[in-house]
Design a protein around this nucleic acid. Sequence first.
DNA 1: GCGATCAGAT
DNA 2: CACATCTGATCGC
Length: 453
Amino acid sequence: MPPGTPFNGFIHPYPIRVDEFSSPPSLTTVPALHLLSHTHSDHIVGLSSKSFASTIICSEDAKEMLLKHEVYKERALKDMELRSDGRVSRTFQHLKVSPLVIGGRTDYQGSRDLLKTLPLDKPTSIEMSETQRVTVTLLDANHCPGSVMFLVEGEQGSILHTGDFRAETWWVDYMRRNKFLEPYLATEDASIPHDEISVFQKLDAIYLDTACLFSETEVPSKHDAVTDLIRLISLFPGNTLFYINSWTWGYEDVLKGIARRFNCKIHVDSYKYNIYARLSDPTLRAIVTENPAGTRFHACERFGRCSYVAEPPSGTGQATKVVYINPVTIGKVKWAQYLEQTTDKLRGGGSVDCLLVALSRHSCLPELRNFVSMFRPRRVIPNTLDPALHGLDWKCVNRMFEGCFSPDTDDNVQLEGNPQLDESNDGDAALKNLHGEGSEELVASWAESGKSR
DNA sequence: GCGATCAGAT
DNA sequence: CACATCTGATCGC
């Protein structure tokens, strides 16, 4: 996790660490269990260390992506065939070392397989120590391939860690029907006692993806965004080439939507192909190709695009027009305006060489509130804090999720025991230093309302 | 001298 | 545009 993660990535009170693999903060706080929600680079910090030797629980897809992970430099070398010896340098190879087979005898010395995969929606009892067990359930997180949430249940309470997730409407409805989350669903009337019968319980905490905590604007659903993008693409001449700037995992809905609508495959580089082709999503597996010739749609290496969509040599024109598709995070209103403007421009014969698609991989505040309200947990812990805010964002959380908590939540519980909270700073200095579009006012207003408690 | 970690830019 | 990624500098064993 990025710097500013509460509790150094531990989910209190369990000795379990999520998405944080750097050296433990002290010898007395050694994790008994590691969880990995997905393989984006800010969630695998410390994992490339050759000295890391603990078991990690993750999804099957995340394991595949991690073991096949190559940094850009390595991918480029491979493409230039400088690595003709077939030698590969994969960042996380040390996590799995197969046993040596010599003369029919298997030598297990030095072999290891630290990534323990669990299927989704299958509660699994995990032994952390001789005296401690927890039940861990992986749930789809709607963020990128292999991304999961963790439901951790044990004697010390039940915790849901969302990892990074996109809680759009359809997905929340889908989760509401998940039979392993069902015991934790809130009643309509918050005042009705909830855990008198032991089957109905409360989540003690939700560790929440707060990447877009200060985005109050609602964003389009992924499905709407892709549908709208496809309408724009349809307005171009039939021979137009498109480059989809899927610069990180999580834009697969765009690839799949285009492949479905235009009945074609998407050209990807061999690195992406070798991963996509092995993931559990059968549609994704089937719509990617390494052959650049047969399709108008390309999602190949960003800084080494194939000749069909390559940057033309300066001064020379390109034989066929290439239109770039860039995923962005913008709100519903702005997106509607953009769609109207761009449609008008294209219908009027204007030149457009870059398209946007309003595809967010994180949940905005309204979506977060909707998700948290579904459970009414005892507390919400932000997965990340902005170090520049010196704990101010932590203070805001309580207020931002007002009305989403269990009625037995003590207001003070939320703020207790946060080691990161900078009491010496009332936040004003942090606010002055804060940069960014409008978030300054937002944080200020939330902080102000929080103070009045 | 290497890997781990950080700052800065995209 | 954004908040994941890459690069190059710096730290530390």
